[in-house]
Nucleic acid binder design. Structure first.
Lengths: 335, 335
DNA sequence: CTGAAAGCGCTTACAG
DNA sequence: CTGAAAGCGCTTACAG
């Protein structure tokens, strides 16, 4: 057996290969990485140097086995293809890597039993779960999650910490803005049935409509899927509803409505005004730009990661509420 | 110490806890999961039953340590926020989970040294890497990847297998379509400097322009970033270029141009025609829908995963070329 | 088909 | 500050 050795040993670098080369114990090498202040500075430096020379990379699976912590965060999204999720994924990824964790992504593809099974499998491999998958049935969720620390995004389930976005103030403001612009008959295009966010937003708009001093008439349409197509198809009914302004569940849906209204020969904001929610990429690429309620993606992600580490540490944090802000842009005009 | 025991043992389920309960060896339990046909059917059934009863989930990190394969695929994307990536991520995720692997996501956030470091770290934790990050410097890429099996998406680097999309035929077709519609002065809005896909597409359009029998004059603008804003800002120059049609590097950029042209008082397709590339979500949500060259996301993802497993198995597959198709939609009209 | 045993690459309590 | 040793939860060659 003629092992090729060029310069350093060409064997796989481990704490042992480093220890051998330096003639010290593997324990010390291990400590140099896991608890650097426990080892002599000189020694540590030599370890780091030969680690670099050998191209050593810590094997996280092995560490995970020894410590019981994998350094992995499972991130479950409803549908990565929905423009709401990419900015959230990015924020979570950033926050995770800041705390030296990596993220395993699971695209739940709209929930269903398969998603529940995959979630169950995932939950066993990670330190914690961040779930942004509003459609997963609560029971499946609880069952799949088991005892894995979990935090929910934009959804509240009894007993599971969450970070949610309270848009009621912003939606009020949005409604008031429409009133100022002279709108009186306003259509609320409700989001998906069973979506926590959808019912929150619906309630917020309803209560605004009831409490406003103006003589507002709220027409409701839905529930509908939160997709462009759904919005597009709703446009006909919207056009004939007599409403001059639309408050849509989210931007994605709102963009579809704008497209569909165009098909009906109606232009925004001249013929109709519309307001979305979330401020996703589509909101900015729409011409004119969509008036909307912004979602603080960056913070949603950061807080989710922070909450998760609190749960992992044994805490029982409550629900964190962030809030969106109304941004009047190009799709709201005088009646 | 009063351990609570309700029904089954409340200890963590492992192959040992199952073995103990069934009074068999852990080896057999292990085989029941890793190589089921090696164990007696009856025995296997009992194992599976008590595993379910105990809520056992295989610890993949432990398996990984033992086998040297983690069951993890690292997926590196340039920028998850760019609409090109979500469909790709989804396709990869699907294909991975079909072969019982999970994906670890790394958002390279436009490359840079940080991304290279993160990649290096990631590469040590996964069985293989799928890299869709055109900006990562080739050297960094090669260094970070080391000996980890890797496949590139939409980029070709000597010595690394890849799956790319050859759009030249579709771009020719797109060009011909513009000519048919009466366009003669056509502006090529080039993508980012250093992007492999951008140079491919640029070359394809140039060679089409040279070879076409029509009297086409190709005006070039760029390189520019592939973002909405970049497209938007390019619109002024485009408007004054005298070109009646634009072929843009990708859809994202094209949508920005449409927005910017609108700002210039120019409408699409009446005043200008435009064609994008990739067929991302934005292409469909634009009003009118964007004429574009479609990218076969699903296949891109599937093939990448397949290629990766070939590399892991010791093969040295070459580059796989898929191809896009021209889809004439609403943004191309008569001059 | 099954079991005993060694090993994967770390960590960490314990003893120095 | 350092080392020897046990252990994390699996897999697998080897012997039966």
């Amino acid at each position: 057996m003629n092992r090729r050795r060029t310069g350093g040993a060409r064997v796989k670098a481990t704490i042992y290969s480093i220890a051998r080369e330096l003639d010290i114990s593997a324990s010390t090498v291990s400590r140099a990485f896991s608890r650097p202040d426990m080892v002599n500075t000189k020694v540590r430096e030599r370890i780091l140097a030969t680690a670099a020379a050998q191209g050593y990379e810590l094997n996280r699976a092995a560490r995970g086995l020894a410590t019981g912590r994998t350094g992995l965060i499972g991130l479950v999204v409803l549908d990565i293809t929905n423009p709401f999720f990419p900015p959230l994924v990015r924020a979570v990824e950033r926050a995770a890597s800041a705390s030296d964790a990596s993220v395993m992504l699971l695209d739940a593809e709209s929930g269903g039993q398969k998603a529940a099974d995959q979630l169950k499998r995932l939950s066993a491999q990670v330190d914690g779960l961040i779930v942004a998958s509003p459609r997963l049935a609560t029971k499946d969720l609880q069952a799949a999650v088991g005892s894995t620390p979990t935090v929910l995004v934009n959804r509240a389930v009894r007993g599971i910490p969450s970070v949610t976005c309270d848009n009621s103030a912003a939606l009020r403001e949005a409604g008031d803005h429409l009133v100022e612009l002279g709108h009186r008959r306003i259509l609320l295009l409700r989001g998906p049935a069973g979506s926590w966010a959808a019912s929150q937003r619906t309630n917020a708009v309803r209560s605004w409509a009831q409490q406003t001093s103006a003589d507002v008439e709220l027409v409701e349409l839905g529930p509908v899927e939160a997709t462009y197509e759904a919005g597009w198809h709703a446009a006909e009914a919207i056009a004939s509803s007599g409403a001059t302004a639309i408050m849509a569940f989210d931007d994605y849906l709102a963009c579809g409505v704008v497209g569909g209204l165009d098909e009906q020969g109606l232009s925004v904001p001249n013929d109709r005004s519309i307001i979305g929610c979330d401020d996703v990429l589509l909101a900015r690429t729409l011409t004119p730009q969509l008036s909307t309620v912004t979602a603080p993606f960056e913070e949603l992600g950061t807080r989710a990661v922070t909450l998760l580490s609190e749960v992992s540490a044994g805490g029982a944090p409550g629900n964190q509420k962030l809030s969106g802000e109304y941004a009047a842009r190009g799709t709201t005009g005088r009646v």
